[in-house]
Amino acid sequence: MITEYVLFSLPAGITREEVVAGMNEIAPRWQSEPDLIRKTFIYEPDAGQAGAFYLWKNKESAQRAHGEAWRQRIQDTYGSEPSIRYFETPLVVDNALGKLIPEDR
């Protein structure tokens, strides 16, 4: 598994309500992503940033989902270039589901 960390700056003056509305608008698109295990949206109003933590089956799927068209949409919508980092994820503790999720190798 791979955890992908995506962060981008928001335009000045954007409200929390606008940020959350954008998250809700695109959430269904991510529900149809077959190799996405989980997405956690994040928002930091003091820094003027938003993004997400994604848990993917593999890095290739993450990179495919966040290709040039996706980057351009972030640029067009928020006026910033997203920063992306990848982390190997050997184990997830999921208290909501009450289980451990090991990587599938």
Results as ranks from 00 to 15, higher is better:
Gly51Ile: 01
Pro34Asp: 05
Leu7Asn: 14
Gly51Met: 00
Phe41Cys: 07
Arg38Asn: 12
Glu25Lys: 14
Gly67Met: 03
Phe8Thr: 03
Glu18Met: 03
Pro90Asn: 05
Ala96Ser: 15
Arg71Thr: 09
Leu7Trp: 14
Glu81Ile: 09
Ala50Phe: 04
Leu7His: 12
Ala12Lys: 13
Glu18Pro: 01
Ile2Ala: 02
Gly79Gln: 01
Lys39Val: 12
Ser9Phe: 07
His66Leu: 09
Gln49Asp: 04
Asn95Lys: 14
Ile42Glu: 05
Pro28His: 02
Ala69Glu: 11
Glu103Asp: 11
Glu68Leu: 07
Glu88Asn: 11
Glu88Gly: 11
Leu7Tyr: 12
Thr3Phe: 13
Glu18Val: 04
Asp46Glu: 11
Lys59Gln: 11
Trp30Met: 12
Pro90Phe: 04
Leu100Met: 14
Gln49Ala: 04
Glu103His: 08
Asp94Val: 08
Leu7Thr: 15
Lys57Ala: 13
Val20Trp: 04
Asp46Leu: 10
Glu17Lys: 12
Leu97Ile: 12
Leu7Ser: 13
Arg64Gln: 10
Met1Phe: 01
Gln31Leu: 14
Gln72Tyr: 01
Phe87Glu: 03
Arg85Leu: 10
Asn24Cys: 14
Val93Glu: 09
Met1Ser: 03
Val93Cys: 09
Tyr5Asp: 11
Pro102Asp: 00
Arg16Lys: 13
Glu60Gln: 11
